[in-house]
Amino acid sequence: MRKPKMFSEFFKNNGLLMGGILMFLVSFWIIVLILLPQLSMLDFSFRYNLPPALQGTEADSYTLDNYRYLVFGPEGASDAFNKVDLMVFVRTILAAMAVTVLNLILCYPLAYFLGQSKGGGFIRLLVIMLVIPYWINEILRAFALRIIFGDGGVLNGVMMSLGLIDQPYDFINADIALYAGLGYAYILLMLFPMYNVIESLDRNQIEAARDMGASWVRIHRRIVIPHAKPGIASGMTMVFMLSAGALAAPQVLGGTSSLWFTQLVYQWFNDTLNWQQGAAYAIVLLVASIAIVLGFMKIFKVNMGDIGK
């Protein structure tokens, strides 16, 4: 009932030609650029890694082997489970969650300040200044952080000259550089949705709550956060998804002993040239990430529809 009305309204508002062009572009984007490649990845993940000669023959059948490998490891291995890869997987998910929460804690006060202060032009300037570093590409930014956090880096230099430490601290292997890099890489994706929703909050509501005796904590808990929930959810979703799927920051900033799950995927595709196995790993990461996001959205009662607002 609702769908046809939505469509007819869409065409009425945009006109037949413009509506048609928009529809075509959006469907092209969704089908050709998103759906098809992902579907072929999905297909890959259920196939054997065969030499070109055997592809398309009898032997090229569907299998769960690639997924089995992630859980149980190679056949005949001494361990019952593929401990190494599973650990990397769990660690990636947990670390991405940690980065997300850290970003949230950092961004909420900032978004509140930016969104509710009446600074006007000055605030806009601040926001622009936040965006400028993102003109620099991701790899460059990651290496810049490496320079800061490295053994002979700026941070160690300052801390040593202040006498706080007498040996350079290994920020890289302690993964501090990695977390900082990931946090930094996607922080604006957390800040902006939150800033937008908080800016749309009527100041009078905050004052009304205050007038009725509410403390600042209660005002945030009952007024600001519920209002900002869609923004918080969309920010957290993006940061979590992108952190879990990040490659550049872990490559450049990760410690030698710790791998990010995407690095495993990358290795399968690039080093081992086993695309089927890589696809399976990638699909597992994707599905797990989506499941986690949906799970949290359910717990915190956020609707998909709200996020688009």
Binding site: N204, E207, A209, M212, A214
Partner: peptide, 21 residues
């Protein structure tokens, strides 16, 4: 003495009801 401590209640020009409550 802050607004939360005064024996006054203000009805705002735009009412400012809490829309999510």
């Amino acid at each position: 003495i802050g607004p939360n401590k005064r024996p006054t209640a203000l009805i705002f020009q735009n009412l400012a009801l809490f829309p999510l409550m």
